[in-house]
Deep mutational scan, measured.
Amino acid sequence: KLPPGWEKRMFRSNGTVYYFNHITNASQFERPSG
């Protein structure tokens, strides 16, 4: 389970998975720990 605010997303163009935090508007490719 991801830390609060984080969700898994995917770029439609190339299928790359990334993680987005809707609380802080942060995004990263590494899976957030917590």
Rank of each mutant, 00 (worst) to 15 (best):
1 K>A: 12
1 K>I: 11
1 K>Q: 13
2 L>T: 02
2 L>R: 02
2 L>A: 01
2 L>I: 06
2 L>H: 01
2 L>N: 01
2 L>Y: 04
2 L>W: 04
3 P>Q: 03
3 P>L: 04
3 P>E: 01
3 P>N: 01
4 P>G: 06
4 P>A: 10
4 P>T: 05
4 P>N: 11
4 P>S: 07
5 G>L: 01
5 G>W: 04
5 G>M: 02
6 W>V: 05
6 W>K: 02
6 W>E: 02
6 W>L: 02
6 W>G: 02
6 W>D: 03
7 E>L: 05
7 E>D: 03
7 E>R: 01
7 E>T: 08
7 E>H: 08
7 E>S: 06
8 K>D: 07
8 K>Y: 08
9 R>L: 05
9 R>V: 07
9 R>P: 04
9 R>S: 04
9 R>N: 05
10 M>K: 09
10 M>N: 08
10 M>T: 14
10 M>P: 09
11 F>I: 13
11 F>E: 13
11 F>N: 15
11 F>G: 09
11 F>L: 15
11 F>T: 12
11 F>S: 13
11 F>M: 12
12 R>P: 15
12 R>K: 14
12 R>S: 15
12 R>G: 15
12 R>L: 15
12 R>D: 15
12 R>H: 11
13 S>Y: 10
13 S>D: 14
13 S>P: 14
13 S>W: 14
13 S>N: 13
13 S>K: 13
14 N>P: 03
14 N>L: 09
14 N>R: 09
14 N>I: 04
14 N>K: 05
14 N>M: 01
14 N>G: 09
14 N>E: 09
14 N>Q: 06
14 N>F: 00
15 G>H: 11
15 G>R: 05
15 G>F: 10
15 G>I: 07
15 G>W: 01
15 G>L: 05
15 G>Y: 10
15 G>N: 08
16 T>P: 07
16 T>E: 10
16 T>D: 06
16 T>Q: 13
16 T>Y: 15
16 T>V: 13
17 V>R: 03
17 V>E: 09
17 V>S: 04
17 V>L: 02
17 V>D: 02
17 V>H: 07
18 Y>M: 04
18 Y>L: 03
18 Y>R: 01
18 Y>T: 00
18 Y>Q: 03
18 Y>E: 03
18 Y>H: 02
18 Y>W: 05
18 Y>A: 00
19 Y>K: 00
19 Y>A: 00
19 Y>N: 00
19 Y>V: 00
19 Y>E: 01
19 Y>H: 04
20 F>L: 01
20 F>V: 10
20 F>D: 01
20 F>K: 02
20 F>E: 02
21 N>W: 07
21 N>P: 01
21 N>G: 03
21 N>Y: 06
22 H>P: 08
22 H>V: 15
22 H>L: 13
22 H>E: 08
22 H>A: 07
23 I>N: 08
23 I>L: 09
23 I>S: 05
23 I>K: 07
23 I>P: 03
23 I>M: 08
23 I>R: 05
23 I>Y: 09
24 T>F: 03
24 T>S: 04
24 T>L: 04
24 T>D: 05
24 T>Y: 04
24 T>M: 02
24 T>K: 02
25 N>E: 09
25 N>V: 01
25 N>A: 06
25 N>K: 13
25 N>Q: 12
25 N>P: 01
25 N>R: 09
25 N>M: 14
25 N>Y: 08
25 N>S: 08
26 A>I: 14
26 A>N: 11
26 A>W: 06
26 A>M: 14
26 A>K: 12
26 A>F: 06
27 S>A: 12
27 S>Q: 09
27 S>I: 15
27 S>D: 04
27 S>F: 15
28 Q>V: 06
28 Q>S: 09
29 F>T: 09
29 F>I: 13
29 F>N: 05
29 F>P: 03
29 F>M: 08
29 F>L: 11
29 F>A: 10
29 F>E: 03
30 E>I: 06
30 E>F: 06
30 E>V: 06
30 E>S: 06
30 E>H: 09
30 E>R: 06
31 R>P: 11
31 R>K: 10
31 R>Q: 08
31 R>M: 10
31 R>D: 09
31 R>V: 09
31 R>E: 10
32 P>F: 01
32 P>Q: 00
32 P>E: 01
32 P>H: 02
32 P>W: 01
32 P>D: 02
32 P>G: 05
32 P>N: 00
32 P>V: 01
33 S>R: 13
33 S>W: 10
33 S>D: 11
33 S>Y: 13
34 G>E: 14
34 G>N: 11
34 G>D: 12
34 G>H: 12
34 G>W: 15
34 G>K: 09
34 G>V: 11
34 G>F: 14
